[in-house]
């Protein structure tokens, strides 16, 4: 059993109003040093696969086909056994 930890982030060129709103909230809380905030998604998937390589290939495909939209998002993931 493998655990994939997937991080999906908006591409740098995509404006992130959620991140801006969070930054505003942090400033209000007194964290004046906060320069920028970008919000993304974190997904955990447990999956069966023969080995690390097979698990990585499967997760890569999941991200490309469904979990991330390549028009607006980048992704990366970590695998734990």
């Amino acid at each position: 059993m493998w655990l994939a930890k997937i991080y999906i982030t908006l591409k740098p060129v995509v404006n992130d109003p959620q991140g801006l709103a969070i930054r505003g909230g942090l400033h209000t809380l007194g964290f004046q040093g906060v320069q920028s905030v970008r919000a993304g998604k974190y997904i955990e998937i447990r999956l069966e696969a023969e080995d690390r390589r097979a698990a990585g290939t499967a997760v890569q495909q999941m991200c490309t086909k469904l979990l991330a939209n390549p028009v607006i998002e980048d992704f990366r993931f970590e695998l734990e056994s």
Binding site: N15, P17, Q18, A21, V71, I72
Partner: peptide
């Protein structure tokens, strides 16, 4: 083509 994102005013 393209995508639809969260409204800028949230």
């Amino acid at each position: 083509p393209g995508a639809l994102l969260r409204n800028d005013a949230l």
